[in-house]
């Protein structure tokens, strides 16, 4: 497990150059910094269209300190597959990391992602999930939660959230995990564990977006932490054939220890129209999700 004193060596390193074009309080940059820290800068990023392709700023300068390939929307896993094969053919042992948003992963680029997972390409795929198409103006995506406001679902989204991490687990890839920007130590550990194995690695990173979810800029980390503490976001990891609930989420297996879901919902403007019944419905959904995951953990631990 990585410690703060180990990370102190990066204390004065600019992992991302200050002066980016991101909104104040952007969760993607928190995640990117942790990712670069975890892999010690030895990575190539493949970034499809989305917020992360705007963040570097204007040419001839960039804010990212690692090599970046900006690719069309649906092609990021395919480009990364080619890139990693070219690197391995030349004898380079770096990591190729796809840093994609939820739209590029769950909706538009899903066919290419499924193909890359099926071929078990040696890439790390990180889905930075801000739960809508934030860059184009908050349109609902496949991972937007039920009843959330977006510009294309003004009365609350009717469909349920796609559980991309579980879909990827069923592709029988060697490593699948969920993470949150509020738990950097957990995320860095997961990235390092993923980097230590060959094959397709998938990490689903929860990233609350202040303008899209309609909460104040300074609550980014607080909202991400509340999502875990209320049980709305479950941190788990599938590694070496075992599915485990990660340490930050472990206490919340017991329903009594979870914070009330209202705390997470009332802090966000996108859930402002929710009634008491809606909250109860979401609570039932969360309980069901935990049930599924705990049963899966049992199944995977026996075999």
């Amino acid at each position: 497990m990585v410690t703060m004193s180990e990370l102190h060596k990066y204390g004065r390193t600019k992992l991302i150059m200050p002066g980016t074009a991101a909104c104040p309080g952007c969760p993607l940059q928190i995640g990117l910094r942790q990712l670069i820290m975890a892999l010690e800068g030895k990575l190539t990023l493949v970034i499809p269209a989305g917020c992360s392709s705007v963040i570097p700023g204007a040419a001839p300068y960039t804010s990212f300190t690692v090599p970046v390939m900006h690719v069309p929307f649906a092609s990021s896993p395919s480009v990364a597959s080619g890139l990693v094969r070219a690197l391995r053919a030349r004898g380079v042992d770096g990591h190729v990391v796809v840093w994609a948003g939820d739209g590029a992963t769950a909706d538009i680029g899903f066919a290419a992602l499924s193909g890359a997972a099926y071929r078990n390409e040696d890439i790390i795929y990180i889905l930075a999930d801000n739960e809508a198409y934030m860059n184009t103006g908050i349109q609902a995506s496949g991972t937007t939660p039920k009843k959330a406001w977006t510009t294309t679902s003004p009365r609350g989204k009717a469909e349920d959230k796609k559980d991309v991490a579980l879909i990827m687990l069923m592709h029988k890839v060697p490593y699948v995990a969920t993470a949150s920007i509020a738990y950097p130590i957990d995320f860095i550990d997961k990235v390092r564990r993923a980097a230590s194995i060959r094959g397709f690695k998938f990490i689903h990173l929860h990233a609350p977006c202040p303008p899209g979810w309609k909460f104040p800029d300074d609550y980014t980390v607080k909202v991400a932490r509340l999502a875990v503490e209320t049980g709305m976001w479950i941190l788990w990891e599938y590694y070496q054939g075992k599915l485990t609930i990660s340490p930050p989420s472990a206490p919340y297996r017991d329903k009594q220890r979870r914070k009330p879901i209202e705390e997470y919902i009332r802090i966000q403007g996108r859930f402002a129209q929710l009634s008491k019944d809606d909250v109860r419905e979401i609570e039932a959904m969360v309980d069901q999700e935990w049930g599924v995951l705990m049963r899966l953990a049992n199944i995977f631990n026996i075999s």
Binding site: M4, L7, H8, G11, R12, K14, L15, I16, M17, P18, G19, T20, A22, P24, G25, C26, P27, L28, Q29, I30, R33, Q34, P184, P210, P216, D217, D218, T220, V221
Partner: peptide, 30 residues
Amino acid sequence: CWLYCPENAIDWLEDKTVTIDYDYCKGCGI
């Protein structure tokens, strides 16, 4: 604060105190 600063505007110095670069700090308040 250094670990969570999205902008990398905070430096964590050798004596483990922090300093903020006000040229680039966006004032998000995280």
